[in-house]
Design a protein around this nucleic acid. Structure first.
Lengths: 342, 342
DNA sequence: GTTAGCACTCGTTTAAGTTGAGTGCTAAAA
DNA sequence: TTTTAGCACTCAACTTAAACGAGTGCTAAC
């Protein structure tokens, strides 16, 4: 069976109407709302064909049709009407992101908040730290907060900042800490944690025998932090939006999904992807995680600043507004890139 | 009408059974499960009395009784059986909290996670920064990350750490930054942000005319951070637990409550309290926030470390297990206090 | 004061009937 | 050959009615 232009129009009508109403779409509805110039009987015939092709399906005999996963896929691949988002929205996005001084976390939180409020879906963001140099040290400094207590500040190459308090002998002075900081920096800067050589560490200890305790504590934390940095971090926003959608009126279903999303590992897997294209759409069972196989995910790869690369995505029902979701994610990825250029 | 011991026992039975089953409790159920040595007819008579006293009520004529808010209140005030939590649980709590090196945020997150998983309610924590000195500066240090880019590290008296990147002229050296840090520290340490005098600032600017740009940027951020610190911060955990309870099977209700809890201000108000006692229980309409007036909140005042004081609480249905909630919060407050002593 | 007994209430469950949106098929019209 | 009107048929959703049963209040006997 071939796909002709009329079939395409009917499929599009089914998808669009179902996206809007969440109700199965009947032939009469289509003939009335979308004037294709043919009667409902004709549309019925075409719909029977579309069903045979696996693009739409009937929940039960006497109901209208809803798009199948394959139907959505066809729509996304061939029919989608890439409406660009309004200029003002784009500008708003861009502006909110530009503020240089803020830390990654804040930018992320704000971005996600915008995203989920603009789409009313759940927004996900993955900050991945896989590309080599991010796990290494850019700057380390020990600061004396009060006698016996120091603050260790660590900046990674990914420009993430971490802080730890450490207990130190109360005789240790600011100068001692500066010395330790200097030495740790000299020896470890730029070297990934798994590349630390035994002789480097021995070197440090040798030069700082009388600050051994401090160095010891610092090294241990440092390595645990850098090691942890290896795994990507996941951010979420707008999970409650789900509760407004009719497909999630069943509490248990929502609960399952939300619990699933609480697991960083899972979200990680969810946003992982083989393809290299800018925007990726995963529809229903195309998702690997079973719990969200009646959801769809639209995601974009983004670049923030010089080093940070990750995914940002939207999770919604399979009946999600793909056109809008894609447009807004495209604009967002662009804005994030511009932050890089600035 | 007087409250005698038999009425008390019956009230207790109603409360306990309703807490367990979430179903109205009938006279026959009580006579069978809680052997009071009287028949159901007698219990029926007593229940009629309890209803007249406003302690229990009937959802409808042919149903059993459920405790009224006043009934829970009576139970909590006079009948509660303060079972202490198991020693192992207490120990686990204590141990998880002891780790000195961690930052406040992590301790809080972990504590809340324990709390909500132990009770299956939603746990709330308020870190309040009202007591004077917390808004002031303990330590400030500017670190040179790379030419043209500095990291500002700020430790407040409340031992919270904040980081900001700031752009600086690329000619500024590490020594310049040290000098600026030193001066800012000297002049501003320990002084609340609203106590900053004009002449102090002028002083700083005068001494550092050629680093004016850096000082300017630093001061601005510093004051914005300290000002922000003023307001208390709220943490939440286990909100999804709510979805398992039969009283929250209605999605809209859950949504309303969860959205309400997303507002920090609101949670702040919720946990605010006049009384000074260790544990405070607010039942249903005793809460000020209308959206949670069919919930109860049990909360404790805690002290963490030397300076941080706040509230930690559990939010559940009015039918919540007060005995357990109170016990676990008491143990927790104690553990947090011990961390202080250690 | 306590209890057995019984009529009564009222939400819940079950069954049966009704409705209506939507289909597939057929036969006529274009 | 394609399109359309017409019609019988299907089936979830809604409506109504009946049966059920948990629980009560009251009365009269213990």
């Amino acid at each position: 069976m071939e796909m002709d232009s009329r079939k395409q129009k009917i499929l599009e009508a089914v998808v669009l109407d179902y996206i809007k109403t969440a109700e199965p779409v009947g032939s009469r509805t289509i003939s009335k709302k979308y004037n294709l110039g043919v009667s409902s009987a004709t549309i019925r015939n075409e719909m029977a064909d579309l069903e045979e092709m696996g693009l739409i399906e009937q929940p039960h005999t006497s109901a209208g049709r809803i798009p199948s996963n394959a139907g959505y896929r066809y729509y996304v691949d061939y029919l989608i009407n890439k409406d660009s988002i309004k200029a003002e929205a784009r500008e708003y996005l861009a502006k909110a992101i530009q503020d240089k001084s803020r830390q990654v976390e804040e930018v992320v939180e704000d971005t996600l908040k915008m995203l989920s409020s603009a789409t009313s879906y759940t927004s996900l963001m993955l900050i991945s730290n896989e590309g080599g140099k991010k796990q290494s040290l850019q700057l380390l400094q020990l600061l004396l907060v009060e006698p016996g207590k120091a603050l260790m500040v660590i900046v990674t190459e990914g420009e993430k900042v971490e802080n730890r308090f450490i207990a130190i002998p109360s005789t240790v002075t600011k100068e001692d800490l500066d010395l330790v900081s200097l030495l740790l920096n000299q020896n470890l800067k730029g070297i990934p944690v798994d590349g630390w050589q035994k002789d480097m560490l021995e070197n440090i200890f040798a030069e700082l025998t009388h600050q051994r305790k401090v160095v010891d504590a610092a090294l241990e934390m440092l390595s645990s932090i850098l090691r942890r940095e290896k795994s990507s971090k996941v951010y979420l926003n707008g999970t409650l939006n789900m509760l407004s959608l009719p497909e999630f009126k069943d509490v248990n279903r929502v609960k399952t999904i939300l619990q699933t999303l609480e697991d960083q590992e899972v979200v990680n897997t969810l946003l992982e992807d083989d393809k290299n294209s800018d925007i990726v759409v995963k529809i229903g069972t195309e998702n690997i995680i079973p719990e969200v196989q009646d959801c769809s995910v639209v995601m974009a790869t983004y670049q923030l600043g010089n080093d940070i690369i990750g995914k940002i995505g939207l999770l919604g029902p399979t009946r999600m507004d793909y056109s809008n979701a894609i447009a807004i994610l495209e604009a967002l990825a662009q804005s994030l890139k511009q932050k890089d250029d600035s």
